[in-house]
Write a protein that binds this DNA or RNA. Structure first.
Lengths: 191, 191
DNA sequence: ACCCCATCTTGTCAATGCCTACTTTCCGCC
DNA sequence: GGCGGAAAGTAGGCATTGACAAGATGGGGT
């Protein structure tokens, strides 16, 4: 069942098991419902075992956030560099990521639950933002737009806000595909 | 100090005191750091006293959310009905509210921490959204825009996302006034 | 063969949320 | 005016939790 050395005493891949269980709990009941002891019970392991893989409860959530930023980097990285509406497609990918991985997303933007100064977290965040950052700097028509950073922040805010509102159940479901809804939000000018 | 009947035994306005203390804690350390017993200590009251005003921990947070939606309704209600860029100004008011009342805002959009089916909460939410709703229905140039709901959702997403990113410390501080930054985000077309 | 050390267990402690039972104070009502 | 109930607050207890310390287990490298 697990890669390295599974015995009655050693679980084999407890780290992954705890992470997966945590993601299930977060997705169905929210971060607040996460309990290290409960996760240990789900993995059929003693109550202190998880602490050996993630120091802390914050450590566990930090690991999830790191994984999340990795997934996000992969998602935005998959958008073709020469896509017609690049920034718009990046936003769509962002929204799709958030709705596909709600548990990761929920944790990623709550720094107060995390070890916000953990090097792996900062690195993972940086890797994810690097795509967007270089995109902004090498902006195709940076001259036409007064400030490329504002266009990027605008797209990010729109994608982030839409995803957040959808996940909290606040925004209505206009289309079958949320990413399609997002794309339709970019076009209209707000009076 | 308090309105009704303050004695050594009766606090006077424990409800308000607990709410205020909770808002301080949330603003500085986040919802996760809220403890009913700690709030009781801050109000110099026995540990079970708060429960008489708010049933639950979720009840306390629900009360905060209700208050928050009330403040939001007031904020968006203050935007003049004939403002030039109405929807844009509503968004600016939304952003200003979120940054002025971060603790309320943090709780309002986390339904899983609340008694989401509490009538007062639903009513308060409805009152706040009523402004925007009627705004969308009586849209000035509803004919020019393919779908007024999309423009509204777009503005809401942009405002909500920008506020959220700012509050989580993710978005950079481009201008001195966040509302000004927001207004500048509405204008640029995303390529 | 042996030792090191990552992994997991057991036991403990303070803090918390919630419950029940009890006390004190207030307010309306006769 | 006082009386009775409801509101407001107190006291104690219980199960759960996060964190910590100390010990048990077993595999891998030398």
């Amino acid at each position: 069942m697990a890669a390295p050395h599974h015995t009655a005493y050693h679980h084999g891949d407890l780290r992954r098991a705890v992470l997966s269980a945590a993601l299930e709990v977060i997705a169905s009941e929210g971060v607040a419902a996460v309990s290290l002891r409960d996760l240990a019970r789900r993995a059929r392991v003693s109550h202190a075992a998880p602490a050996h893989h993630f120091k802390d409860k914050a450590g566990l959530l930090t690991a999830i956030a790191v994984e999340g930023f990795g997934l996000l980097a992969a998602a935005v990285g998959a958008v073709p560099a020469d896509a017609p509406h690049r920034l718009r497609e990046l936003g769509a990918a962002y929204v799709e990521f958030a709705l596909a991985h709600p548990a990761h997303f929920e944790v990623m933007f709550q720094p107060r639950l995390l070890h916000a100064d953990a090097p792996e977290l900062i690195a993972a965040k940086e890797r994810a933002y690097a795509v967007l950052r270089t995109d902004v700097e090498n902006f195709p028509d940076a001259r036409r737009t007064p400030d490329a950073r504002r266009a990027a922040l605008s797209a990010w805010s729109l994608a982030h806000g839409f995803a957040t509102l959808r996940l909290s159940g606040s925004a209505p479901e206009l289309d079958a595909d949320p990413a399609a809804t997002f794309r339709s939000l970019v076009a209209p000018r707000i009076p």
